[in-house]
């Protein structure tokens, strides 16, 4: 296990290198000159040239890459070209709000989603199954900004219970956390149900059923373990997605998250911030996937870690 972990971690290094090249190339391939955007329409060509130099955008592209990569390895992320704030600070300010919102959304969505899924799977085909599944699916079928705006209208304007947005007390988490988790809960519910139903029908489970109680218990253990696989996959994926920030929900709820930061940075072509944020996301994903692969093995020892 330990060997596996070390090897997996080592194997992520080339991924990060590939990501860095990809990100750098992507950012620089986007049409739009950051110096021009920074300077605004009133600026003179001389101003813009000066800004470009200041941004380190002079010289051949490969040397720019090497300079950036070299600095990044040493955690010198530079300054935002837009606000001139250190990139680490820009990201730092928004990382925690993003993480907490993700955690809140994931927790409620996983608990509710998996419970609905299990209930549905066990009561498959009965009215309980249909009702809870239609409910769960309804959650995922709402366009999130519409849902968000309706919630704000109800809970902030009409009832005055919750703030319209921003980051602060637990009250600020309720609506964005709920909206963000809604889609996840539905996905979790359906996958849990699916996995449950499918594996309940597996040969060994049916055999166990026919043979009587003790083996049935064994089979249940198997069932749960196997059912867990897609649920784990999905939890990992969803967690990664949500950590990437949700620009729509962050915009609606004025949430200081990474999604909005990234989209704003792209429209300003704020290269240092875009690059650093995407590198951070890659790192998160790599770590999450590693965790997922390890959990596979925990859930089902038949899947060996090679």
């Amino acid at each position: 296990m330990l060997v596996y972990l070390v090897r997996r971690l080592a194997s992520t290094l080339p991924v990060l290198v590939v990501v860095s090249v990809f990100v750098f190339a992507f950012v620089h391939a986007l049409p739009g000159d950051p110096a021009r955007l920074e300077a605004g329409p009133e600026a003179s060509p001389a101003d813009i040239e000066a800004i470009r130099k200041d941004m380190g955008l002079d010289g051949p592209i490969w040397s720019q890459y090497l300079r950036w990569a070299g600095n990044t390895v040493q955690f010198r992320l530079g300054r935002s070209t837009k606000t001139r704030q250190p990139v680490a600070e820009v990201i730092g300010e928004r990382f925690m709000p993003t993480l907490w919102l993700t955690v809140v959304a994931m927790i409620w969505a996983t608990i509710v989603g998996v419970s609905i899924g299990v209930l549905s799977g066990v009561r498959r085909g009965r009215w309980q199954d249909r009702t809870v599944m239609v409910l769960a699916i309804s959650g995922v079928s709402f366009p999130s900004f519409w849902m968000g705006l309706l919630l704000i209208d109800l809970f902030s304007v009409r009832l005055g219970w919750l703030p319209t947005g921003g980051y602060g007390t637990w009250k600020h988490f309720v609506m964005p956390g709920f909206t963000l988790g809604l889609a996840v809960a539905a996905v979790m519910a359906r996958f849990t149900r699916s996995a449950f139903v499918e594996i309940m029908a597996e040969d060994y489970v049916r055999t166990a059923r026919m043979k009587g109680v003790p083996e049935r218990l064994v089979a249940w253990k198997h069932t749960l373990r196997n059912a867990l696989i897609p649920v784990i996959t999905l939890t990992g994926l969803q967690f990664g997605f949500l950590l990437g920030g949700a620009v729509v929900i962050e915009t609606v709820f004025s949430w200081p998250g990474l999604g909005r930061l990234l989209v704003d940075s792209v429209s300003f072509r704020d290269y240092p911030v875009i690059q650093a944020v995407i590198m951070l996301f890659s790192l998160e994903f790599v770590l999450i996937n590693l965790t997922v692969d390890v959990l596979y093995a925990v859930a089902n020892p038949e899947i060996r870690l090679k």
Binding site: F26, V266, F281
Partner: peptide
């Protein structure tokens, strides 16, 4: 390993940003 890492790269790349890129290009 290679394919999944490639998928990781794609996954890590936020969809909206990818879309902005596609639309920009």
């Amino acid at each position: 390993g290679a394919l999944m890492r490639l998928m990781d790269v794609l996954l890590a790349f936020p969809g909206i940003i990818l879309a902005i890129g596609v639309v920009a290009l």
